[in-house]
Amino acid sequence: MPRIVLFLLSGIIFGAGLALSQMIDPARVVGFLDLGGRWNPALVATMAGAVCTTALFYWLARRRAAPLLGGDCLAPMPTRIDTKLVAGAAIFGAGWGLAGICPAPAIAVSVLNPAALLFLGGFAAAMVIMRRLNRR
C-alpha cells in the first residue's frame, strides 16, 4: 500500500473515532473538565479505548525491526521533564478548557460546524509565530 493511502485511511479512521465518541462536541470535553459541576465521565472511556488499542499496536511495532511499509523506526523521543514541558502543557490546558476543543477534533468538526475554523486560525497562527521565534 502506498504511504499516502495509509495516511489518508488513518486520518479517516481517526476522524471516525472522534465523531463516534462525540469528542468533536465541545460540550463533551467541557463536561469532562467540569469536575465541580456536572461531570461527564465519557472521555475516560474514550481515552481508555484509545490508549489500550494504541499500546497493543506499539507493542507489535516494537517487536519488528522496521515498519511494515519500510523506512526507519521511530527515533527515540525526548524524555526530559522540564519547565518548557510543564509550562507548555499548562498553557495548552488553559486553551483546551476555554473552548472545549483541541486540534484533532477541531479539524475533524470543521466541515460540520465552521466555527471550529476560528480556533484553527488561532492554532495555526500560534504555530507559525512560535516557529519564527524559535528560528531566531
Binding site: 479512521i13 481517526f14 471516525a16 473515532g17 472522534l18 465523531a19 463516534l20 465518541s21 462525540q22 469528542m23 465519557a42 472521555l43 472511556a45 474514550t46 481515552m47 481508555a48 479505548g49 484509545a50 490508549v51 489500550c52 488499542t53 494504541t54 499500546a55 497493543l56 499496536f57
Partner: peptide, 9 residues
C-alpha cells in the same frame, strides 16, 4: 465513547 476510542487507537 469506548468504540470511538478504539478507532482512534
Amino acid at each position: 465513547s469506548f468504540s470511538g476510542g478504539i478507532l482512534i487507537g
